[in-house]
Simulated scan of single mutants.
Amino acid sequence: MYDLTLIGIGTGNPDHVTFQGAQAIRNADVILIPRKGENKADLAGLREEIITQVTDTPPKIAYFDIPKRRADDGYLRGVDEWHDAIAVRWHEAISAHPDARQFALLIWGDPSLYDSSLRIASRLDPQPATRVIPGITALQALTAAHAIPINDLGAPYVVTTGRRIRDEGWPKGVSKVAVMLDGECSFQSLEMADYDIWWGAYVGMKEEILIKGSLTDVADQILETRAQARADHGWIMDIYLLKKRTN
């Protein structure tokens, strides 16, 4: 039997790691770190930097490669099979350290918000005792960077994906929508004159880029900036908040 701790580490700024998260890193016997290809090597490097900063004697690190996700058999089925494959990689990495009892993964953002680490952990056999350390989410980092509240006074908001905005349109009954996991800039499917946007890439990191304004005015700027940033870094993480105008 072993323990697995999922540690939210924020959105790329080592200062986002909480005291609780730092203690969990120090308590780990082995930390699993994903490798996502050469273009995303700095994501593994940031995790290594965090471990070095918060420990005097770093724990062992077990690297594992993230398998590619199939996209030829429907989105949900492809993701489900992908999670199965990742769980196999976790199991292999954990099994390579039979004497260890405390394993941990450093989760970008928070394990509970648009992250699948808990779903993957549930596929492990035998099942570990799983613990979650909360972290700063990309949504929190975005609103903090723009110095705005996420909700209007007494009003609800929705957190959703770009795919749903593109396929289903604007959610009913809300004036603000936070959009995550949008590689296609799905705000282009909306009537742009009706919305304002607060967009951010690499929020919380030294590479942070922020753009805000009327969607009509800044949509092209976001598209161009995003494409250039992706080319420069080889990867991009971005998020945005949309507000529907009432007048």
Rank of each mutant, 00 (worst) to 15 (best):
W90G: 04
F19M: 14
G109S: 07
P126I: 01
T137H: 02
K40R: 15
G173N: 13
M192T: 14
I50M: 14
E168T: 03
R163Y: 13
G162E: 12
I7L: 03
E49G: 11
E168A: 11
T57M: 09
F187L: 06
V218C: 10
W90M: 05
W198H: 12
D167W: 08
L210P: 06
Q102V: 07
S117I: 02
A193F: 07
G78Q: 06
D72K: 06
T137G: 02
E208Q: 15
G169D: 09
L223I: 10
L76T: 14
A96S: 15
Q221I: 10
Y2S: 03
H91L: 13
D152K: 11
K40W: 03
P149K: 08
L241W: 05
V30H: 06
Y2H: 09
E184Q: 13
K40T: 04
W170M: 06
D110F: 01
G204Y: 11
E208L: 10
Q127N: 03
D115F: 01
V203T: 07
L241G: 03
L181F: 11
I9K: 00
Q127V: 02
N39I: 11
F103G: 00
L105W: 08
V88L: 07
V30F: 08
A100C: 01
N39M: 14
H16G: 00
R69Y: 04
Q20K: 15
G169R: 08
L32Y: 09
S95D: 10
S112G: 09
R26M: 10
L113P: 02
G173M: 09
Q23S: 15
I86H: 05
Y63I: 05
W108T: 00
D80G: 06
W235E: 06
I136V: 14
S122Y: 02
K68R: 13
L153S: 02
C185V: 12
R47D: 08
L105H: 05
A219E: 09
P34T: 07
E184S: 11
L118H: 10
E38Q: 14
I31M: 06
R131P: 02
Y202V: 01
I236V: 04
L124A: 04
L76M: 12
T246L: 13
R166C: 09
Q188H: 13
Q127Y: 01
S122E: 10
D80F: 05
I165M: 13
V88I: 12
Q20N: 12
G45F: 01
I136Q: 10
T161R: 11
K212N: 13
G45H: 09
E49Y: 07
D182H: 00
